[in-house]
Design a protein around this nucleic acid. Structure first.
Lengths: 125, 125
DNA sequence: CGGAATCCACGCCGATACTG
DNA sequence: CAGTATCGGCGTGGATTCCG
């Protein structure tokens, strides 16, 4: 709790408008990507980790916790050996993802416009 | 140029998907708000500054430059005394703003859902 | 008016090591 | 497997000062 204090803080400061209320929630290097992954279906921690090449455990769990705190992601723990934890989108999360879709489309067209600095990546999709 | 190196770097690294290509462009504390302000019409530097309560000149100019570099904002200089500079959206910027609208709507409903930590602000709109 | 330059604090994020 | 703890770099953003 000394570093990067992830959990249980009432964020959602005084928002100027809807945009920053939404940006607040998706800001973070991997958050929108996590949402995107989860939109395809329920995922275990390790699956998410493998699906997001380059993410560290710390950032993944931190972003997951914040997403959970913000009511976008549901965390289900199965007390087994070995332990299993499954993450899925809540209804609010699915709504956010839907709202993100036009932005994603804009981004795709923008990449096309700039013209391919992009390299081939495993999870390009 | 020693600090916070704002301008003229070919960002747009290898994007995983459209979402982070878009997020890359709007990430920054004030960027989406600047876009939002400019969507209402052409603005001078000082007008933007007053319209974004809390922003510093440094961050405003820095974000403006990045937005300009990314082709979202047009900067028009009028060599007069006193000097005048006007900022406006490009076509790409207007398209981005349109793509941002569903997200803004989601945000507004989210604010409503959380239930009003928000305080009254001048530019609330 | 519209910046540029500098200093500095804080928080994001990565790497590594350890635990149940 | 699914985290937790800690350290540290570095980028982001704030405050202040100066310039054309």
């Amino acid at each position: 709790m000394t570093d990067t204090a992830p959990s249980a803080e009432p964020r959602s400061g005084p928002y100027i408008c809807g945009i920053d209320a939404a940006m607040d929630v998706v800001s973070g290097k991997w958050k929108s990507l996590i949402l995107w992954e989860l939109d395809a279906g329920t995922r275990r921690f390790g699956e998410l980790r493998r699906g997001l090449p380059g993410v560290s455990e710390k950032m993944l769990i931190q972003h997951l916790r914040e997403l959970e705190y913000d009511g976008l992601v549901h965390r289900e723990v199965y007390r087994e050996v070995p332990p299993r934890v499954e993450y899925s989108l809540t209804e609010l999360g699915r709504e956010l993802n839907a709202a993100l879709e036009p932005l994603a489309e804009w981004g795709r067209r923008r990449i096309d416009r700039i013209g391919a600095e992009r390299v081939e990546l495993p999870a390009t999709g």
